Computed example of a mutant assay.
Amino acid sequence: MNDRTGGGPDRRYLRKAELLREKVETPEKYPFNLPAVRELERIEFHERVTYLVGENGIGKSTLLEAIAAAWGFNPEGGTLNFNFATAETHSPLHRYLRLIRGTARPRDGFFFRAESYYNVATTIDELDRDPEAKGKIIDSYGGRSLHEQSHGEAFFATFMHRFGPNGLYILDEPEAALSPVRQLAMLTRIHELARSGGQFIVSTHSPLLMAYPDSRLYNLTAGGVRECKLEETEHYIITREFLNNRESMLEQLLREEEE
């Protein structure tokens, strides 16, 4: 695979992630026995957007978490300055990854995890209650406590206010609390930031979010990691088939359920 993503200067902050397989002593144990990790050699990232897609349990979140942790992010999410830990549940996979960085350096960054974003919001509130704190962290998230908003509103406030140009953004299932309209709005936001020097690595189940054209998409399967097109993903195929043949598919699904 060609390691360049376009005809101009290579402006990626993160170029590759490689598994140091020679250091793995227990390949039969978690996380090395996960389908997405078992056959992994390397992933080459697009300068704008890279997608990791696949079925539940394949290892997407574990791999994304390892990439984020190897870069220096808190495994539970947040900026590089977030050092809280509510539970030591992350895998040791990051210690077996080699990240190949580009010559450019990001000015900002964020690891967004849908499943632990409540903990990020709580940490922000706790830090802002410190009387000796200089300024309020929440001001960079729109000024309103994330706990005072719906899940979807809090997610979107982060994307709109906290994310800025020239940043590395690693997102794990950011669509989890977003309506289809909000997912499309997020696609627009990704485009704005990508045009302003942002690089995104996104794990998602949403065909809407996968549709960004200037991107690279990897399908994680039991056979390993394979680059593919949106139209080749199971997410796209099933969604299209359901929308085009809703009545017949429902009839078959519900009949099988009754039987």
Rank of each mutant, 00 (worst) to 15 (best):
F84I: 00
P27M: 07
R129V: 02
F82T: 00
Y51G: 07
I43E: 06
L52Y: 07
D128G: 08
G8L: 13
L93W: 02
A85C: 11
K23N: 15
L19E: 09
G109H: 03
T79Y: 03
F45R: 11
F82W: 03
G57K: 06
D125T: 07
G6H: 07
V37S: 12
K16M: 14
V49C: 11
Y96K: 06
G78K: 00
L93F: 04
A36Q: 03
G77W: 00
F112G: 08
L14A: 05
L19R: 05
V120Q: 05
A121Q: 03
T5W: 13
W71H: 08
I124W: 03
P35G: 13
F45N: 04
F32M: 04
E47A: 11
T5H: 10
V120P: 07
G102L: 05
R42V: 04
I67Y: 08
F84S: 00
Y118W: 11
P31F: 10
N119E: 13
F110N: 04
E41M: 12
F45I: 08
Y117L: 14
E25Y: 12
F45S: 12
H46E: 11
L97S: 09
Y96G: 06
H94I: 01
R95T: 02
V120W: 03
E22S: 13
E115K: 08
T26H: 15
L80Q: 07
P35Q: 08
V37E: 10
R11Q: 14
R12L: 12
A104E: 15
E18I: 15
V49S: 12
D125H: 08
P9T: 12
F82R: 04
T86D: 07
G72N: 04
L63Q: 06
G78F: 01
Y13E: 13
N74F: 00
A70Y: 05
E47D: 14
T86H: 01
L80H: 03
D10P: 09
R12V: 12
R98A: 11
G102Q: 03
A121D: 03
T86S: 07
